[in-house]
Design a protein around this nucleic acid. Structure first.
Lengths: 106, 106
DNA sequence: CCTTTAATTCGATAATTATCGAATTATGGA
DNA sequence: TCCATAATTCGATAATTATCGAATTAAAGG
């Protein structure tokens, strides 16, 4: 993973509303959620959420698909996996505290 | 991990110079690196790096210790572990692409 | 073809962040 | 004590980002 790809992904998750949107999508699973519903859930303007979702998408953390009038967003687990891999390998592979995180999740 | 702790950590890693500094520290291992050397390595002003290192430290990703005239910074692997754990458990536990990242690092 | 619904893009504004030079604090040695 | 080194904090400025309302694009149904 390029260093700039990584900073983009971290930036995408570094904002409260955006991280909240991302977590909603993770919890929603493969069905995803339409943009408007996310905006309503988080109490923000549709245009605001649209901006945030676009940024998450450019960072490779979510994908979108038009479903009739709705645009459904989904968490992109490959993207998240790549980011975790970056943190693991490139930053901290083999360190005890990081191993602990692995075992924890296993 | 609190949601705000997570956004702080992501924000800390979302800036090129700061991520570069963090990776230098990871590679330096337990010996760490003095602030000045990091600044020189990255070609930035000492005051700039000081700001960045302070932010990384408040985010729990690095620690510092005065060693005579130098202040030595070290990567805080517990902090990184906590962030990885957050991404794993709270966001994406059990998903194939995330499992792949695990197996990859194991 | 017009209306409604859903979302995005545009434009403006407020807030935050990155950067650096200058001033300050701390340490160690002549 | 005075000087040199190392880092931080302060203050200013430039750049980026978050937010939202208004205008625009797209789809479905009468």
């Amino acid at each position: 993973m390029e260093i700039n790809t990584a900073t983009d992904a971290f930036a995408a998750l570094s904002q409260e509303t955006r991280l909240a949107a991302f977590r909603l999508l993770v919890r929603a699973g493969p069905a995803g959620l339409p943009a408007g519903e996310i905006a309503r859930s988080l109490g923000a303007a549709p245009s605001t959420l649209s901006t945030h979702l676009g940024l998450l998408q450019r960072a490779g953390l979510v994908s979108s698909e038009r479903r009739s009038r709705r645009i459904v967003y989904r968490a992109d687990f490959d993207g998240v996996g790549a980011l975790i891999r970056f943190l693991m390998k490139d930053c901290c592979k083999g360190h005890p505290a990081v191993r602990a995180a692995l075992d924890d999740a296993a």
